[in-house]
Every structure is written in C-alpha cells, then in structure tokens.
Nucleic acid binder design. Structure first.
Lengths: 355, 355
DNA sequence: GACGTACTTGACAACGATGTCAATATCTCG
DNA sequence: CGAGATATTGACATCGTTGTCAAGTACGTC
C-alpha cells in the first residue's frame, strides 16, 4: 500500500471544471494527425519518427498535419508501449538549499542530460520514512535509475528493488545491507590531512566540532581526525570533541562555548559546511581567533580566508550519474565504489599560530 | 520534429543485453497478482486502490499476493489510462550550482511535494535553443505544469502550449509575448533602495556593475538605480556604469578596473550574487575599500559584513509552485503576477563613508 | 511481359492500468 | 419467505503509442 502514500491520483480528465473555453484546446493524438494527413496511424507514426521507408511526399503531408494541429508526442504512451520504463532518473537527497546537495544535483543533471535523461529531485527532509515513500514514488514512476544520498540508516528495503532492474547508486554514504554502486568522499583521508595540518602548525589543543555521529561520512571524518591525533601522540584534543552538532546555530553556540573555556582550544576543525558557517559566525568578533579548518569548500571561502578540506562536489553527482548510466546501458557486474579525493586548501585561517 | 531532439528513445526491453541472471526479476504486473490471488484483474485493482466494496477477505488475499510478488503499481500505465498527464512539474532554470536557482528549486519542490507532485529540473545553460528543447521534452512527458526561469528572450513559442492546458509560470522574468502567471522580484524597488542608501551615506561617485542588460531583471535593477540617482539630482555615477558583466571573474576584473581609475568610485552597487562575489574578491586586499551594496543575499554575507538587497528566494519557487498548483486544480482567470519584495540589510560594507 | 526485389502502407495486437456496465451473491425488511 | 436494495465481482473497452506481419505497388531485368 505504500505505493500510494501521499500521492493522490491526478484528477481524472473532466471537461467541466475548466469552463468551456474555446481557447483551451485538447491535445491532438496521432490518430487525428493521421486522419488529417489521410494516412494510417502507423504510417503517421513512422513518418514522425523518421523511420526509413516512408515516401517523401507522405512524410511531408504527415509533418504538415502534425504542425497544423500542434501535435506533440505523448511520451507516457510511448513509454508504456516501449517497456514501461521512463527517461527519468531520480535523486533523493537533502534540501537543495544546501550547496552540497545542489552541487551534486547540478553535476548529475548535466551528465544525465547528455544521455537524454531527465533528473527528478526530491528532498527527504532528513526523514527516513519520507525517504522511503519518495523512493516508492520514484519506482512507481519507473525511473531508470535512482541516486540516493540516504538519510535512513537501513537500506535493506531497497535490496529487493535492486534486483528488479533499477540500478541504485549511493552518494556520500555507503549502502548498508545491500550491494550497490556508490560514490563516496575520502572522508577519513580529508579529515586526517586537516588534523595533520593543524598539528604541523604546532597545535595540540584542537577541537573537533562534528555533526551526528550516526552518519557514515561523519564517522569517517571523526576517525580520520582521531587517527591523525593518535599518530602524533597527541591527546590534548580529547576534552574538545563535540559531536551531534547539527545546524548552523548549534555550531555557533558550540564554538562560543569552546572559546569560553578556561583553557580554550587553539584550533578548531569543523566537519561540514554548515558547522563551518556556524564557527565563522562565532569567530567573527574574536580579536585573537583560534585556527580553523573546515570540511567542504564553499563560496567566498577565499575572501574569508578560510582553510578547508575541499572536494569536487559536482563530480560526486556526475560520477554517480555515470555509474547509473552504465547500468542502464546494460553493464552488469559487482558493485563499484568511487572515492572522490580531497585536498586541503590553505587560505589563512588554518595557518594561525597557536597561542 | 523538435519533439525528438536530443532525446533518443529508451532502449527497447531486451532480455539479452543483461546476461540471463536469475537474480534479475521481471517486475510483476497486476494481472499476475490477480492470478495468484485467484481474482480478476479488476478486483485486484480495486483492492490495491482501497476502493469500497471489496470483501475484506478478498482484499487481504490480493494484498498478500502483491506483497509476495513484490508488486509495484506501474505509474506510467495508470497515467496513460487516467488521462495522459503525469504527476510531474517541470522547472527549467539556470545551473543549480547557482544558489539563486537552487533556492528557487528547493522552495518549489517543497511546495509541490505537499500536493503529491514531483519536480523535474533541467538546466538551460543559458541557451535559448536548449531551453526550447527542454521545454519540448517536458511537454512530451506531459508535465502538469511548467515553471520557467527563461533564458530565451522570446517566449512566444510557448503561447500555443499555454492554451493546451499546461499552465506556465514565469519566475524572475516576465513572460514576453504571452499571458502567463509570473513571480517577480521587486527589482526596481530594491535597486532604488540600494541607490538611496548609498546617496544617504553621502556617496556621489557610485559605480553600478550590472549583468547582461538584455535580461529583464537586470534592466529593472538598472532602471531603479538610475531613478534613485535622478531623483537626487546626481550624475556623478554615469562614468562608472558597467554592464554586460556576466561572471565572477569578469566582475572581479571590472571592479579592479574601477578602483584603478584616477578618480575611483566611492561606492559600488553590484546587481546580482555572482557580481557581488567578484567584487568582494577584488575588494579583498584593499586598504580603504569603497562602500559596497549587492543585490541578492548570500550565505555568510553576515560574516563578511556585506550590505545587500535581500529577498526571499525560496519564496519565489514556493509561490510559483502555488500558482501552478492552483491552475492544475482548475483555477481559471487572467494571468497573475506576484511581486516578491526586497529589503536592504545593512551589515557594514554599504555604510562606509565616501573618501 | 513475367518475375523477383525493394519499397510503401495499413490492420491488428500489445504495453499495464482503470472506467463502465452488467451479473451474481448477500442482506434487509415487510 | 420473497422482493428490493446493496455489496461484490468480472468481462470488456480504452488511454496513445509502437512492433509484427502481411498486403499492395513500383521497378529493373531477362
């Protein structure tokens, strides 16, 4: 029954709710075009599809008829006939207002467009239930493939679908409970390089402000950072670990709290763009701010002089779309994982001296 | 013929390109569910759709059969039967990597979701030809409505479609050559307030860095700014007008050029987010930077202390989706225009004194 | 002039669902 | 208990397109 949840059927066609208005035309069908051109349905179809073996004069007549009626192919009918699968690829992600998600969407859309595929987007609002119902809705629409930046932890419910010919690609978070292609960021490596960078600058009391630890990318970043600290034999960071910080305001509060400590940290590592934004707000009015490195690059980081662990966000979408397209085109074989590399971009904030 | 451009038909279903793999299941149809449940096709349909007048025991049997087969309704077939119109709404805009477009998309998607509609997005790459073919592709897929942030100047080609029952909503740019709903920003008012704000701060030599003047929003912003200058009897801005500045790099160069003048402007007004970004880059290393007001708010503008003309971008998408939904639901009547208001947010950069 | 070949065309079924309408089963009430 | 109402079920047509297959037409060749 889940296939209906929240998705009421479209209104049945009715000619009464729209006051009979002569300017509202019904959309002509191929049958009508054929009739006007004086040929059979099938011949009209052939002509408009530029199939071979249509007499030139016939083709012209059909084309004229189609133009004069304002005919437009009905993709729904075509898709049904051709195999009940659409030219759509679904993307379930967080809010596009977050530049990470919109960059991914942009990269995916650009890649898909080259193959004549359209991208449908839906926002899971970080709600596992909603995500499931969106996936259901996409599958009902017979998307050719599904790109998911999952919010839900458990993806097992997708396993059965994965075997039904709809390729899944997981972005940013590895699939849990099923084998599927994935495009991930080198979270541990990026976080490690951030940690090493700060250690290299002489910092010991390094705070880490992290998001929900249940999310895999966050775990990777935490692990990477911790491993850098361990390798250097540093334990002074431990009092400054803050996780479960989930939005900009909370990050700002958290950083203010860190600064207010008797012995504040001399450096801060924030594990995603939202948290970096919050930290920047908190640090804004500081005379002698701690060093700061943020995970995820962002617009104007150069102007602000913020050191970041950067990675190509649109590449994530692009690569995911590419993997999906390969599957659509018939590629079989075991699940693949692409890891997008990171690079630390020093812009000043991460190079402040400890004090 | 345009209806095919760039959109090859999906591959016909074939059972050979995918090596016969027992784990790949064909998706069952309602007929198969009905057979397994031992009822007719129609009864199965009724049961799964929760229509009245289905015996409880029958309903259960059908449900079980559907579950055990992993049945999922075929939305394509349903849509064809119900009237060849989908549950999709199309959005044609610029690249989602631009926060303006992604905010609009986010607002639209959120609103549509409440009505069980899905958003398809496509990037026109600022190319009128591509835009047309994307609109064609959307119409072929029988979108219920179309939201367009047009790049093309001439929208007359849409006029015939508008009368065929597909509601169009224009965002950010008014329709040209046809009557359609629109959601616009108060460009002139916002730009006027920016101009007045700078004049009020004592500035006279005010530069305006604007994007392509052929785009309506830019014209509105230019006009608003100019009218503020005229009202104040100021003509000192005229040597500093720069239009046709279309990207971040170009904006940066342009602003550097302005600063290098013998008599540089004491204030700068940039007419969109990209240009503001470029200006900020150019101003970054200035000891005594000119005042700056930018059109469009942006992330971290507060941290940077940038004064902007703000407006609610996601509201543009939301209102457009609302207008579209009303039309979908049968609303008729003349084209409506919603104007989103702007407000100047002073954060420091616009309040620097002239020198 | 007959025949094979290639081109052109159309009738019909099919994709997978739902609407219509009629047939049967069950219930209600006098 | 029987008539009429109501609940339950199914046969069939249909949405708009394309694939299959067969029929008809034109042409070149010997």
């Amino acid at each position: 029954m889940s296939y209906l949840r929240g998705f009421p059927p479209p209104n049945p066609r009715s000619d009464i709710d729209m006051p009979s208005d002569e300017t509202t035309l019904r959309r002509p069908t191929l049958t009508e075009v054929a009739a006007l051109a004086g040929v059979s349905l099938k011949t009209a179809s052939r002509a408009l599809n530029r199939e071979p073996n249509v007499a030139a004069s016939t083709g012209r007549r059909v084309q004229d008829a189609a133009d004069s009626l304002g005919y437009r192919l009905n993709g729904i009918a075509r898709e049904l006939r051709r195999g009940a699968t659409s030219a759509l690829v679904g993307l379930v992600s967080g809010d596009l207002a977050n530049p990470f998600y919109s960059a991914v969407a942009s990269g995916a859309e650009r890649e898909l467009r080259q193959h004549g595929l359209l991208l449908i987007t839906a926002n899971n609002d970080e709600d596992g239930e909603l995500e499931r119902s969106l996936v259901d809705a996409f599958l009902e629409r017979r998307v050719r493939a599904l790109l998911v930046i999952p919010s839900a932890d458990d993806h097992e419910y997708l396993a059965i679908e994965g075997n039904r010919g709809v390729p899944f690609v997981f972005l940013d978070r590895p699939p849990d409970g099923l084998a599927a292609d994935a495009v991930l960021i080198d979270n541990a490596g990026g976080a490690r390089s951030a940690g090493e960078h700060l250690l290299g600058g002489g910092h010991r009391r390094i705070a880490m402000v992290a998001d929900l630890a249940r999310m895999a990318p966050q775990r990777g970043r935490i692990d990477g950072f911790v491993s850098a600290m361990k390798s250097a034999g540093n334990i002074d960071w431990e009092p400054y670990l803050r996780t479960e910080v989930h939005d900009v305001r909370h990050a700002e509060r958290t950083v203010r709290g860190l600064l207010a400590l008797d012995e504040p940290p001399s450096a801060i590592f924030t594990t995603n763009n939202r948290l970096t934004t919050g930290a920047l707000r908190a640090l804004r009015d500081q005379v002698n701010p701690p060093a700061l490195v943020g995970f995820d690059d962002f617009d104007l980081a150069d102007v602000l002089g913020t050191t970041v662990v950067a990675h190509d966000m649109s590449a994530i979408g692009r690569e995911a779309a590419r993997l999906a397209y390969e599957r659509i085109s018939g590629h079989t074989g075991p699940a693949r994982t692409i890891v997008i590399s990171t690079s630390l971009i020093a812009r000043g904030s991460g190079e402040r001296f400890p004090h």
